[in-house]
Amino acid sequence: MTALPVMSTNPPEISTDSLSLEDAIANLKQTEDPDLRYYAAWWLGRFRVNQPDVVDALVVALEDESSRSPDGGYPLRRNAARALGKLGEPRVVPALLASLQCEDYYVRGAAVESLGDLGDKVAIPRLLDFLDGGVEAATMMPGKPHLREPYDLILEALGSLGATEAVDQIKPFAEHSVEKVQYAAARAMYQLTGESSYGDVLVRALAAPDLQLRRAALMDIGAVGYMPGAEAIAETLAENSLKLIALKGLLETHLQQSPGDVLSDEAIHAMDLMDDLL
């Protein structure tokens, strides 16, 4: 499922003045203090600072060996991978592809997500390798609270990348036992086939008893631009802030898919729904 946006209803907005750009870059390049470096990687991604020295330093951080969490994870690599997805710099794709080999599940997940965001189809074959063995192989990682691979993120990335050749491999995951994997598969299948039955799966998820699933489904429908879901978004039991973000996503995907000077009836309807949520 889509990562949730920075929640606007929770802490007050993060201020860009909390760190200067020069400090953030210097913090990212130093290796003495891992906490500062970790925060700088996040910060530079959050504020989308796309400049060559930042990109280079983040690529270096993707191979960092110094910052390790107690469970053997690579926290700095995770943040670097996420930040690189936000900067929109195509030249980092090979570095992200390399980090798909990382033993840290969360580094792989962050890299997968960023590859989906960067939109370079060259990533498709490597992402498809993760689906080898199909649903049967997509089991829990022994001793860990997650599956063997970040299947939900992989399926989403394949959808975002327009991997129509992967439809046969993606489809069975709509029956996976984990709900967020099912929804990720439905989301990808809707993007790749345009079949409304998959959009309807996402709309049904808006009624899930679990608020986290409802929130994720809101973002998914917005991201894929499933216009028949607009009304259902507005009626979901969730924060108005989130419903507004979902409808904005829906509207903007729709505007992108049907450009032109005249606003469509669907676009106007979506805006009327947004007005009522303000």
Partner: peptide
């Protein structure tokens, strides 16, 4: 910067 804002302002003007 947001296409949704551009669209909403266009609708308002209409």
């Amino acid at each position: 910067e947001a296409p949704a804002l551009q669209a909403r302002a266009k609708l308002a003007l209409q």
